[in-house]
Every structure is written in C-alpha cells, then in structure tokens.
C-alpha cells in the first residue's frame, strides 16, 4: 500500500488535446454531411416502345382508359375512367372516388383472370402536373388498410402524349 501511494504522486497525464482535435473534426464532418433523406419508392412500369408492339391478339378484357384533363394552371380539371366521371365531393378527392370505383371493379369480378388482370391506360393532358399522374397510379394500383397493402390493378401504361 505504501508503494502504491508513492506511485500516485507522479500520475501520468494523458495528452488529450490531439485526440479531442481529431474527434471534433470527425464530428463536424458527419454533422455537415448529414442530410435527412425521406425514403423513396418506385412504381414499376414496363413500357416497350410503341413500334415494337406486335399486333398480338386483342386482350380478352378491354383496356380501361383514364382520361385526365388539366386547367390553365396544370391542375386537375376533370377525370374520367371510361365513361365514369370523378368530380370529388366535399370529403373525398376525385382520386379517392377513383380508388373506390376500382375496388368495386376488382371486387365484382372476383376470380382469377379478371379485373386485376386488366390494364389501365393513363391519358393525361400535356399540361397536367406530374403529381396527378402519380396520384392516379397510387389510386389504381392499390390501397393500404390497417397497415396492410392490398393490390388492385398493377398493369398501367401511359398513352402516347400529344401536345
């Protein structure tokens, strides 16, 4: 015990300064490069060029055509799936209505090889903002209920645009 006490007298001092310098450098680097990234996700669409589309046999069920028109500002003016218009109400947006329509379409034709096999063609005005395309794809391709994802129609393509 006596020996240890005498050793304590000249306690070895660690040189902290260089380490703290480097550690702060690292800290500053990571703070500067830090960027909050929101997760992103994809809608996969397979679109062969129109020229290569061979005149195959017509599909058994006709393609549904979703026609969206734009107003002068590029916002949604009207939306129609086939002959059914979606105007939106106080509570529901047109896209909510479109989704419930698709749900009933898929639900009515239960069984394999029916509505969910159908193809939807998006025919939008040139000026329509892209966000409405994504909204429409979201409404058509599925919905989320109680944290679970249900698929609706996944075959989606774009009509050739015309200016």
């Amino acid at each position: 015990m006596k020996i240890r006490k005498t050793k304590h007298k000249d306690k070895i001092e660690l040189q902290m300064t260089p380490m703290i310098d480097i550690v702060f450098q690292l800290l500053v680097f990571f703070i500067m490069t830090f960027k909050i990234v929101e997760p992103e996700g994809d809608f996969n669409v397979r679109m062969p060029p129109p020229a290569s589309q061979s005149p195959s046999q017509p599909p058994e069920t006709p393609t549904l055509i979703l026609k969206m028109t734009a107003d002068a500002d590029g916002n949604l003016a009207s939306m129609k799936l086939g002959d059914v218009p979606f105007t939106g109400t106080d509570k529901l947006t047109p896209f909510d209505q479109l989704r419930s329509h698709i749900v009933s379409l898929v639900g009515d034709e239960a069984g394999p090889g029916t509505a969910s096999e159908r193809e939807v063609e998006l025919d939008s005005d040139f000026n329509l903002k892209y966000r409405y395309d994504i909204n429409a794809i979201t409404a058509i391709s599925g919905y989320i209920q109680d944290g679970q994802k249900f698929k609706l129609i996944e075959k989606i393509r774009f009509a050739p645009s015309s200016e």
Binding site: E40, G41, D42, F43, N44, V45, R46, M47, P48, P49, P50, A70, G74, S124, D125, F126, N127, L128, K129, Y130, R131, Y132, D133, I134, I137, T138, F158, P160, S161, E163
Partner: peptide
C-alpha cells in the same frame, strides 16, 4: 411533382427510342 405530364413522357419516350423498356416512377 409540378413538372408537366407531357414533358415527363418526352423523357420516357427518349428512353424508349434508345431501347430501354423498364421504368420505375419514383415517389
């Protein structure tokens, strides 16, 4: 999100003409 639909399709069209077929629209 506020780009015009037609302009986005022009981009898709350019890729189709170059021979690409699979697209992923990101949101």
């Amino acid at each position: 999100e506020s780009a015009r639909h037609g302009k986005v399709l022009e981009m898709v069209d350019a890729a189709q003409q170059a021979g690409f077929e699979t697209f992923a629209f990101r949101g």
